[in-house]
């Protein structure tokens, strides 16, 4: 069995095992309603981590996705309150996300600032700008009015229990998978992540590619913001708080290795399902928030521990295989003689 497939099956097996444990020990886990909600929440983190996966595979990191969601969220709410039709709101938020991503990309590719520093700082900047745009009452306090624009609220609805955000997530995951494995752009991103220097020498346009990955990440964050604001019918300053870290954690759990060149969209999908599953299950136990955080942290640790263990095991297996090859060819040549 090939290594990449085995890696995916392990994450999948972990998800199934945890789901079985939660199902056996809690009452309301195996309900259709719970699965629908679970998939909706996974789609929110999942859309972001699809975008982040581009950046990580390309060898960079993006911590600003929380800030971008926050900013796109208020753009959504403002446009919807002005009475813009739903499609325009959607495009507006995605463009806002792209703009944020472009700012990140500009700082990293043109100003040559470290990606970690840029996105850590720009996350603060984006959520700061959001506060300027927030709805305020007469005394200047932030308020979150309900959005009533019918054509916009459609995005938060569902067909037979399948929320639009879930459908969009799965469809986009398939597209992203194909882009990453079948198109020139996707393969260039992978090669850039594996070795920036040698890809630059073989003529891959590094600067433009890097810029594009950040813009794409911004676009996905904008999309996630549209669906979530529409579902909640309002926005607030803390929308997307902590999402930057969670999206990266989801990618890493799914086998998208920090440092670039490894992993694909399925990893991002499995990772986000895993994260949301844990949160959902812990919530069902009715534990105190302290225990919830403790278990969440512990399980993330265990997940990346398994990942590393598997990585080192498959490395050893590869070495063994290459040795076996050498011995094998040695034997054949002997026989031939």
């Amino acid at each position: 069995m090939n290594n990449k497939l085995a890696r995916k099956l392990i994450t999948l097996a972990l998800i199934v095992i945890i789901a079985l444990i939660f199902g056996a020990t809690t009452k309301s886990f195996y309900t259709l309603r719970n699965f629908q909600m679970l998939l909706r929440e996974a789609a929110f983190i999942g859309l972001i981590s699809l975008g982040v996966s581009f950046v990580i595979i390309g060898g960079c990191i993006d911590l600003s996705s929380g800030g971008i969601i926050c900013f796109s969220g208020i753009v959504c709410a403002r446009l919807a309150q002005m009475g813009a039709p739903g499609v325009v709101v959607l495009l507006g938020a995605v463009v806002a996300g792209c703009l944020c991503g472009a700012i990140n990309g500009f700082c990293i590719t043109k100003l040559k600032i470290n990606d970690f520093v840029t996105t850590l700082a720009s996350g603060y900047v984006f959520s700061g700008i959001t506060l300027f745009l927030m709805f305020r009452d007469a005394r200047g306090r932030i308020e979150s009015p309900l959005i009533r624009s019918e054509s916009f609220l459609v995005f938060g609805k569902h067909i037979n229990g399948f929320y639009y955000i879930t459908i969009a997530w799965i469809a986009l995951a398939v597209i992203v998978y194909l882009v990453q494995s079948r198109t020139r752009f996707g393969l260039h991103v992978v090669s850039m992540g594996s070795s920036e220097k040698s890809s630059a020498m073989s003529g891959v346009p590094i600067g433009r590619l890097k810029f594009l990955t950040f813009v794409l990440c911004g676009a996905f964050c904008g999309l996630a913001a549209v669906f979530t604001v529409s579902y909640q019918a309002t926005t607030y300053p803390n929308l997307g708080g902590g999402m930057g870290f969670q999206a990266v954690a989801a990618c890493v759990i799914g086998g998208v290795v920090l440092g670039g060149g490894k992993g694909d969209a399925t990893g991002a999908v499995f990772g986000s399902v895993f994260l949301v599953l844990i949160l959902n299950g812990i919530y069902k136990y009715g534990l105190s928030t302290a225990w919830q955080y403790f278990i969440q942290g512990g399980i993330i640790l265990i997940a990346i521990f398994f990942d590393a263990l598997f990585g080192s095991l498959s490395q050893k297996r590869l070495e063994l295989l290459s040795h076996a090859d050498e011995i094998g060819t040695g034997g054949e040549t002997l026989n031939a003689k």
């Binding site: 954690a249 640790l301 990346i304 590393a308 080192s312």
Partner: peptide, 26 residues
């Protein structure tokens, strides 16, 4: 975690951050 198991420090300390807060709370 960082030196021997070679796990990404960024994710490890993020996870322990949650755990330490909850330990303080408990």
């Amino acid at each position: 975690f960082d030196a021997v198991l070679k796990l990404p420090a960024f994710v490890v300390t993020l996870a322990t951050q949650y755990m330490l807060y909850s330990l303080a709370d408990m």
